[in-house]
Design a protein around this nucleic acid. Structure first.
Lengths: 364, 364
DNA sequence: TTGTACGCGTTATCAT
DNA sequence: ATGATAACGCGTACAA
């Protein structure tokens, strides 16, 4: 029997779903015509269309159900971005925000929505149930469940800021080169004892000093490459590097690790921070310890967020927003049938006021 | 080996979609059983389930299609957030990011994904085609198409930072009170000529000086209320307010409007900025003009982002992240059948180093 | 524990 | 310009 019989008991509250068919029945036209009224206005007379829309409004029908329409068309009209942390981190991290902004800009051109999928434990179900036409996997650890479960969907996919995998579209930056340039800059200035405030090495970060072994095994490509860049720059000279790992990419963690580094190794005259966000925290630590920047302590960031220029922070620039836009575009390309591409963007050291030669003090 | 029929012509590229039925047929079991293998593991023997999963893997079946599954269940497993601007703005604005982080945190508890929907021209189709179970409408203009088209979907909905509408869930803050406190603070310090760097008044912002008429007609509730708060605080005293409208909530716009204000009205001794982001730009303008803060110019923000404390910026705190979390929770409540609620969160003036009494100079 | 049968709400195709 | 029909891929009673 009809789901909206004349003897309907609950006229307004019962929310008996009104469907396209109901409209059709009510007007004595075919469901196809009602569908056309919404999707192909040119396929029916303006007059009939008006009547349909009017009846729809009267009956409280708000247009074709996207769930059904998606199924039928085989398109979700959205792209998924997998982020390797709670989403609140993504929004708290300006670099991630910039990146997502770029992605959004690219998708918007095609009218696609953006589905954000956080990488908590148990990502698999989230990924499996995501109504999307493709994925962007951002900053996942090597061999992460995020990536494997996304790949499992068999949809177009773009990896970002990870180790390249043959046959998979990829956008990355020259992490190594940027880090190398940063460390080289410090060496040229004369620094010989340098601290590194590092981003997490793996999904289970360990706060504080990092063993060489752990450093080599870092699960995050970005972190691993930057550390390698720092080390290689120092390699030939007799300078010492002390690496401390932050639990999160936040100013608070930057402050904590900077503090720990400086108290364990007072001879340190410069800090290489693996992000501007960490560097901001390190700066605060320096202030509170009474270390003048750059006289007593040189400070270097990574990312070159807009705020770096404001603060006069020397930093390694990367085109974060472009990276996002590009990731979106590579995804759209695949959706259109083009082959997957791999792109590496350049980085560039931007020297500002936070780095200088170390004071000519008795340093160890 | 072929992944389909023996006579398959295109073995690997043809991407003939593998469905649940194919698995069932291959194993000689019913589709229902395969479905259960994924959704109700307890409904079949572990042995059979293992065989099913194995076959699925072999055939390249990656689990039930979310599009179909969503239709069948009538749930999209995602919530939509409508943002009244290009998404890149949302990510560029720390306050919006914080808010979204809060929303994400709330949704994550229920395993729901977050669909971001930008408010470009032609929102309606985006909203109509969004696979979601509810909407959060953030900062939309009064009577905006965003809101009306979202309401049209007939899904649970929460309005945020807008004028309350009876019968619709709502989260807001005490915009008026915060603004009032900020202006009152300046008056107590002795300021008598004050500039306002305002957020946009409507979807079509007009850079520069704002007429009183336009001020009253501001389409954005938040902007309107804050302006009212500023004005009311000044009302009884004979202080002058000069309101300039920013095109966007960015430091660059803050800088531009601060510059314009100070050059048009050199007698100004304090700036009320309607966001911390604008205030940061205003600060830069002050620096470049050689105006010492707070001696020559007092500076006041709104939102109290973390950076405000770092910079020593006096600001009006609002619990931005909680606001997001709450919005998410109100939405989940409705989905669970509870009645819609309306919540207003408090604001609080936080006085820091950027405000002081005006210098005792001949001021106009 | 497994299978049957049906429908979820829409749209593409073809016919009229 | 409009209609009939057949999928789209799956989940869930209920029967076996």
């Amino acid at each position: 029997m009809a789901n909206a019989s004349p003897a309907d008991v609950s006229p307004s509250l019962a929310r008996v779903r009104v469907t396209l068919k109901d409209i059709a029945r009510q007007l004595g036209v075919s469901p196809a015509t009602v569908s056309n009224a919404y999707n192909r206005p040119d396929q029916l007379s303006a007059e009939l269309r008006a009547r349909i829309l009017h009846t729809a409004q009267q009956l409280g029908y708000s247009g074709p159900d996207p769930l059904a329409s998606n199924l039928r068309r085989g398109r979700a009209r959205a792209m998924g971005v997998l982020y390797d942390a709670p989403l609140s981190y993504a929004f708290a991290d300006p670099a991630a925000s910039l990146f997502l902004g770029g992605v959004a800009a690219a998708l918007q051109q095609e009218g696609l929505n953006l589905l954000l999928i956080p990488g908590t434990r148990d990502v698999a179900p989230s990924v499996a149930s995501a109504s999307v036409d493709g994925f962007i996997v951002y900053c996942a650890q090597d061999g992460s469940e995020l990536l494997t479960s996304a790949l499992g969907r068999g949809l177009p996919l773009v990896m970002v800021d990870q180790a390249q995998v043959p046959g998979i579209a990829h956008v990355g930056i020259d992490d190594y080169g940027g880090a190398h340039a940063a460390a080289a800059h410090l060496l040229e200035l004369g620094h010989r004892s340098i601290g590194v405030v590092s981003l997490g090495l793996s999904e289970r970060p360990q706060q504080g000093p990092v063993s060489l072994k752990r450093e080599r095994q870092a699960g995050y490509y970005t972190t691993r490459e930057r550390l390698r860049g720092y080390r290689d720059a120092l390699g030939r000279r007799r300078a010492r590097l002390h690496v401390y790992e932050a639990l999160q990419n936040t100013p608070a963690e930057g402050e904590a690790q900077a503090r720990a580094l400086l108290s364990a190794h007072p001879e340190i005259t410069a800090l290489l921070c693996m992000s501007d966000v960490l560097a901001m925290g390190a700066w605060r630590a320096a202030q509170q310890l009474g270390y003048a920047v750059p006289q007593r302590l040189s400070l270097l960031g990574y990312d070159d967020l807009p705020v770096a220029a404001t603060l006069g922070l020397t930093s390694v620039y990367q085109p974060t927003e472009d990276k996002g836009r590009l990731a979106g575009e590579l995804l759209l390309e695949q959706l259109a049938g083009a082959p997957e591409r791999q792109v590496r963007l350049p980085t560039e050291l931007r020297v500002r006021a936070s780095t200088a030669a170390p004071e000519a003090q008795s340093s160890g």
